[in-house]
Computed example of a mutant assay.
Amino acid sequence: MSISYQLDQLHQRVKANIWLRYFAVFNRVGLAAGFLPSGFVKIMGERFTSLSVNHPMGHYLEALHLTGYYYTFIGVIQVIAAILLLIPRTATLGAVLYFPVILNICILSIAVRFEGSLITSPLMVLANLYLLCWDYDRLKLILPFKHTGAPTGISQQPIIRSTRFPIAFFSGVAAAVVVLVLLLTNGYDIMPRNTLADCQRQCKDNSSARACQVFCNCIHQKGQSLNQALDGYHRALRMKFTQ
């Protein structure tokens, strides 16, 4: 039995469940709500956040804002992807268009440790992946599987709707969200935060307060990159332990 046929069977069972269908609708609305405001801000030519240009994410957003119509283009793409998601007939196209944009935002947020989207963007990536899997029947031809199909034709089988609540699936979703949040909120030794005051506030509970202050000053006062600030932080830590 081919992988393609097994995936077809699994996908048919999933799409027959009413709760998983509701979850797909929920993800579409949630993802659309995430892109519409930010997209319109870009189309209007306004700066997306009030972050200082000294902040690592502020560096990027300020440069992006100054790119002219490229900045507007990103906003247009976000709005189009959001609208396509809300229309049932174009939801698949919306999910495909949405994915590279949100994946880029996710990687960017993690790379610069931007807490504004550090948690939400990975969750949005997962939601987008769910929608792409939901539309597997429309996207499967681009996957590197041999599409032989079932001898009797799985698409010809009658779809039996199920109202059984998928406890295992939603338990897995909840567990994935909890693990992701814990990893992202506890996976870094230090965070730049959004302002100097917020950054310095974490130094009070830090066993290396001086090194923490060095890091915050490098980010918010000197405008150094995240890597430069981390180098200064680690140098200060080494000096502490060698004294």
Rank of each mutant, 00 (worst) to 15 (best):
I3V: 10
Q9N: 12
S207C: 09
T185G: 01
Q202R: 11
T67G: 00
A127R: 01
A33N: 09
L36Q: 08
Q243V: 14
T163D: 12
R138D: 02
L51Q: 05
H59C: 03
A91I: 05
V173N: 00
G223Q: 00
A95Q: 01
P192F: 04
F23Y: 15
R210G: 05
P151D: 10
M239V: 09
F99M: 02
Y188N: 14
A95N: 07
K240D: 07
V178S: 00
S117I: 03
L10C: 09
L132G: 03
L182C: 09
T90K: 13
D8M: 08
T67S: 12
A63D: 04
V173L: 13
T49L: 05
K42C: 11
N194G: 11
R47V: 04
M44F: 10
A229Q: 06
K140Q: 02
Q157T: 07
A174H: 11
G30S: 10
G39Q: 05
G45V: 04
C106A: 09
I110K: 06
L7N: 06
V181S: 08
V53Q: 11
R161K: 08
E46H: 13
N104P: 06
P37E: 03
W134I: 01
V76Q: 05
K146S: 10
F23M: 07
L20Q: 03
L61F: 02
R238N: 15
K222R: 15
I74E: 05
A175C: 07
L141A: 15
K15E: 00
I105V: 11
R201G: 09
P158G: 15
C133H: 11
K146W: 12
L196I: 07
A176D: 02
L139S: 02
P166V: 08
I107N: 06
K222A: 09
Q156C: 12
L84E: 02
V125F: 13
A24M: 08
F48W: 02
Q9S: 11
F35G: 01
I87D: 06
Y71P: 04
P158H: 04
I160L: 11
I119P: 01
G232Y: 03
K240Q: 09
D231W: 04
F23D: 04
M1C: 14
Q78K: 08
Y60E: 06
G39S: 00
V76S: 06
A209V: 11
E46S: 15
R13I: 03
R89C: 08
I87T: 12
G34D: 04
D231R: 02
T49M: 01
I74M: 10
A63S: 13
T185E: 06
Q202W: 00
N194C: 08
L108F: 08
A63L: 13
Y69R: 08
Q200S: 15
F48P: 02
V214P: 03
S207Q: 15
L123G: 07
P158C: 11
R201A: 14
F170R: 11
L97P: 03
F215N: 04
A209R: 14
A111S: 15
K140G: 00
G39P: 04
N217I: 14
K204D: 13
Q78R: 12
K146L: 14
C133Q: 06
G39I: 00
P122I: 00
S208T: 14
L123W: 08
P100K: 06
G223K: 04
A236S: 08
G94L: 07
R235Y: 09
H59I: 04
E115G: 08
S171C: 13
I102T: 05
R210D: 09
